[in-house]
Amino acid sequence: MSIIKTVDVKKWFGDFQALKGISMEVAEGEVLVICGPSGSGKSTFIRCINRLEQHQEGEIVVDGIELTNDLKNIEAIRSEVGMVFQSFNLFPHLTVMQNITLAPIWVRKKSRSESEEKAMELLERVGIPEQAQKFPGQLSGGQQQRVAIARALAMEPKIMLFDEPTSALDPEMIKEVLDAMKELAESGMTMIVVTHEMGFAKEVADRVMLFDEGLMVEENTPNEFFDNPKNDRTKLFLSQIL
C-alpha cells in the first residue's frame, strides 16, 4: 500500500520549469532519500507534497486524499504531513515548549496540559528535555533542529518530510540530529529525506532517488545506488560528492 503517490507532477516558477514530471510512490513505513545537485528541484518537490508550493500539473495523493484546491483536503494533508526545514524555522518569540504545543493547542484543539505532557515526551525522545523553557535563540543549531523535529511530531503526523535538515549545522552537531532521525525511522515512520548525508542514506534508507534538472533520473536501493549506479548522471554525482 503506498501512502504517497505522485503522477507526472509539473511545476513552473514563472517561465522556469522546476519539475518536469515526477512520478513515484512511497509505501507506508518506508524511508526514502532524495539527493541530487543544487537546483534540481528536490526541495520544490517535497514542498509540493504539503502544499507549500502549488504544483500545476499532475496528481499528488497522500494517504488516499488527493491534493487539489479543496481547502478541506489541503488541511487534512497538512495535518498528516510534518516538515523539518533546513533553517529550522522555529518561532523565536516563543519558548521551546510553546513552539511545540502551539499547533496541538490551536490546530488540534487539545488541552494545554495534555499537549505539554506530550511535548515533554517528545523532547525526551529527541534528547533535550532540559531545554523546554528556553528560547530558540539560546540553543545550539543541533538542539534547535531537534526541537523542530519535536514540533513536527507533536502534530502526530503519518509522514515526515526533511529538507536538508543537517546542512545548516556544524559537523559536530550533525550526528545528534541524524540519530534522532534514525530513531524515528526505526519506530516505523514514513519519511522522505532530502539530504547529502550519504552515510545516513546507506544505513537507514529503503530507497534512494536522484533528481536532476527537474526529473528523477535514478531510483534504486541504497546498495545498488551507491555501488552499481545505472545512470551516468548518478555516477557523475556520486564521484563529485563522495
Binding site: 487539489t68 484546491n69 479543496d70 481547502l71 478541506k72 489541503i74
Partner: peptide, 16 residues
C-alpha cells in the same frame, strides 16, 4: 482544472 462544483465553497481559488 479540478474545479469541483459540489465542493466549490471550500475551493482555495474560489475562497480567495
Amino acid at each position: 482544472k479540478n474545479f469541483d462544483i459540489r465542493t466549490f465553497w471550500r475551493d482555495v481559488r474560489f475562497l480567495k
